[in-house]
Amino acid sequence: MKTAPTPSLLRLIGAGLVVSAGLQALPAQAWSLTIAAASRRVFLHVGNGTADDNNGTVNRVSANLTAAQLLSGAPQAMTSNSTQSASLYGDNYNTCPTPSAQVMIGASYRRSNPGNGPASAMLRVTSPASLTTTAGDTIPFSEISWTVSAAGSGVPNVIPAGTFSGGTQTLTTIPANTYIENCHTFRYANSAIRAAGTYDGRVTYTLSSP
C-alpha cells in the first residue's frame, strides 16, 4: 500500500502590483465598493498585504494527508499561513474571520474621469499544469479549487469560486473607481492515490488595465 504524501502545497503570490492609497471611506458591508476617482492606478493584495506599500509576502495553503484521508478519496480542506483577517480598505473590517483557513484577495481600479483610460481592469490568476515533487511526481493543478465568502457581504462572490486550470484564467472585471474583496478557501480534490512526497506549485494573481 502506498503511504500518504506529505503536504500538497500551493503557494500564492500577488505580483506586479501598483499600490494605491487614499481610498474614500464608505460603509464596508458590500465588498464591491465605489471609491474616489484618482489618477489611473491598480491595487491588488493576496493574503498578507499592505495598504500603502508593496508587500513581497508569499502565503501558502497546504494539505497534509494521512493514509486514511488519502484512501478515502474525499476532498480535503487546505489550511493557510495567512494572518490577514482585516480588510485593507481602510476601515479594518474583519472580512476573513478565520485566516488560517482563508486567503483574502482584494483589488481596485481607479481613473480620474470617464475619458481617461480603459473602463475596467482584469483580475487574472495563472497556475502551472501540475504541482510537482523533487522526484518528478505530479498532481494536476486542476485538483485544487476554491470557494468564496466575505463576512457581512451582500455579494460574497464578487470574485467567483473556481478551479485552477493549469493556465491563465480571468477571474473578474473591475469597473473604474471600484474596490472588491473576498476570502478564498481552498480544497484538494484527492481524486487519486499519489506517491509520497511534497508537491509544490505557485500561482500568480495579476491585475491589469490595458
Score class of each variant (00 low, 15 high):
residue 124 R to E: 15
residue 126 T to L: 06
residue 126 T to Q: 13
residue 127 S to P: 01
residue 127 S to M: 07
residue 128 P to F: 11
residue 130 S to P: 06
residue 131 L to F: 09
residue 131 L to Q: 04
residue 131 L to Y: 06
residue 132 T to R: 12
residue 132 T to L: 12
residue 132 T to Q: 13
residue 133 T to S: 12
residue 134 T to A: 15
residue 134 T to V: 14
residue 135 A to F: 14
residue 136 G to T: 11
residue 137 D to G: 12
residue 137 D to M: 11
residue 138 T to S: 14
residue 139 I to V: 14
residue 142 S to F: 09
residue 143 E to T: 10
residue 144 I to P: 00
residue 144 I to T: 01
residue 144 I to S: 00
residue 145 S to C: 07
residue 146 W to G: 00
residue 146 W to R: 00
residue 146 W to F: 11
residue 146 W to S: 03
residue 147 T to H: 02
residue 147 T to R: 11
residue 149 S to V: 02
residue 149 S to Q: 07
residue 150 A to I: 04
residue 150 A to F: 02
residue 151 A to Y: 04
residue 151 A to W: 00
residue 151 A to T: 13
residue 152 G to R: 07
residue 152 G to V: 04
residue 152 G to M: 07
residue 153 S to T: 05
residue 153 S to R: 02
residue 153 S to V: 03
residue 154 G to R: 06
residue 155 V to N: 15
residue 157 N to D: 15
residue 157 N to F: 01
residue 158 V to H: 01
residue 160 P to H: 08
residue 161 A to Y: 00
residue 161 A to V: 03
residue 162 G to F: 05
residue 162 G to K: 04
residue 163 T to E: 07
residue 163 T to A: 08
residue 164 F to M: 10
residue 164 F to R: 00
residue 164 F to G: 01
residue 166 G to V: 06
residue 166 G to H: 03
residue 167 G to W: 08
residue 167 G to N: 13
residue 167 G to E: 12
residue 169 Q to L: 12
residue 169 Q to A: 12
residue 170 T to P: 00
residue 170 T to Y: 02
residue 171 L to V: 08
residue 173 T to R: 11
residue 173 T to G: 08
residue 173 T to F: 03
residue 173 T to Q: 13
residue 174 I to T: 04
residue 175 P to N: 12
residue 175 P to G: 12
residue 175 P to C: 09
residue 175 P to V: 07
residue 177 N to G: 08
residue 179 Y to F: 15
residue 179 Y to A: 07
residue 179 Y to P: 04
residue 180 I to Q: 08
residue 180 I to V: 15
residue 181 E to L: 08
residue 181 E to S: 10
residue 182 N to E: 07
residue 183 C to T: 04
residue 184 H to F: 15
residue 184 H to C: 05
residue 184 H to W: 15
residue 185 T to M: 10
residue 186 F to K: 00
residue 187 R to I: 11
residue 187 R to M: 13
